[in-house]
Each structure stands twice: as C-alpha cells, then as structure tokens.
Amino acid sequence: MTEELKPASAGTAEPCLPPALRKPRLRRWEAADYLKIVHGIEVAPATLAKWASVGGGPAYQKVNRTPLYPTVELDSWAADKLGDPVRNTSHG
C-alpha cells in the first residue's frame, strides 16, 4: 500500500513530507529534495557535492564515505541564505 502525498493544510508552516524525507539525516539527493519541498530552494545534488568540497553549503556529517545532511542544518542554512523578507528593492 502506498502512502498518498497530501498538501499541507492552510495555515500550517509544516509541509507534508514524503516518508523518505522524514529522517533526521538525509543523503545528498534527499537533501536536495528536502530543500526544494520545504524551502523552495532548488539545488542539484552535484551542487551540494561541490559546496562540500569548496564551502558555502549546508553542514553535513559523514558515515564512512557517505555524507549525511541533518535536517536542522539544512533548515539553518536555508534560513541564512533566504534572509529576512523585504517589501521593496531598497531594503536590500
């Protein structure tokens, strides 16, 4: 039996995530999906890999050779990248 993906209820900030993205740590491709669904930030897994090498991306942990991105780190990184909302272009 497959679980149907339902849209988030109006007035809630919590999106309805697929089961694969409800883990505390995500593989690189899952982290890319998470950023897109939760924060609206589209980033390719290859870009996350490059940022892991040169810097500028979300913090991650490694298990053997597998990078795992904690969802709290993805949320923190996205909040930093998005910044505060502005009402017009003169605010930044």
Rank of each mutant, 00 (worst) to 15 (best):
1 M>G: 15
46 A>I: 03
33 D>C: 07
20 A>T: 11
67 P>S: 04
86 V>Y: 01
70 P>E: 05
71 T>C: 14
59 A>Q: 14
60 Y>G: 01
48 L>F: 02
66 T>G: 00
52 A>M: 02
50 K>D: 04
66 T>C: 06
87 R>T: 10
59 A>K: 13
52 A>Q: 06
22 R>F: 05
87 R>I: 05
8 A>P: 04
2 T>F: 07
84 D>K: 05
86 V>Q: 04
83 G>M: 13
57 G>R: 05
24 P>R: 15
65 R>A: 10
6 K>D: 12
63 V>D: 03
80 D>N: 10
19 P>C: 05
53 S>T: 12
26 L>Y: 08
18 P>E: 14
58 P>F: 14
3 E>Q: 13
81 K>W: 10
55 G>P: 07
69 Y>P: 14
15 P>L: 09
26 L>K: 00
86 V>R: 01
43 V>M: 11
18 P>F: 03
37 I>S: 08
75 D>W: 06
79 A>W: 10
4 E>C: 12
23 K>W: 00
12 T>L: 12
39 H>R: 14
25 R>Y: 09
84 D>L: 06
19 P>M: 02
74 L>R: 03
89 T>W: 00
4 E>W: 08
27 R>V: 01
40 G>E: 02
30 E>H: 01
47 T>C: 09
29 W>L: 07
50 K>M: 05
12 T>P: 07
41 I>K: 06
55 G>Y: 09
53 S>E: 07
40 G>R: 08
55 G>H: 08
54 V>C: 04
82 L>V: 04
21 L>M: 09
91 H>I: 00
36 K>T: 00
63 V>P: 01
64 N>A: 15
62 K>Q: 14
59 A>W: 04
65 R>T: 11
61 Q>H: 11
74 L>Y: 06
67 P>V: 00
35 L>T: 05
31 A>H: 12
55 G>M: 09
38 V>E: 02
5 L>N: 13
80 D>T: 14
42 E>I: 01
25 R>Q: 11
24 P>Y: 07
64 N>Q: 15
67 P>T: 00
79 A>D: 11
40 G>K: 07
51 W>A: 02
3 E>N: 14
40 G>V: 01
59 A>T: 15
25 R>C: 05
88 N>H: 11
53 S>V: 12
14 E>H: 05
77 W>F: 12
10 A>I: 05
33 D>W: 03
27 R>K: 12
37 I>Q: 13
10 A>T: 06
64 N>W: 14
16 C>N: 14
56 G>F: 03
19 P>L: 02
33 D>N: 08
1 M>Y: 09
13 A>W: 03
56 G>V: 13
53 S>F: 09
81 K>A: 10
39 H>V: 09
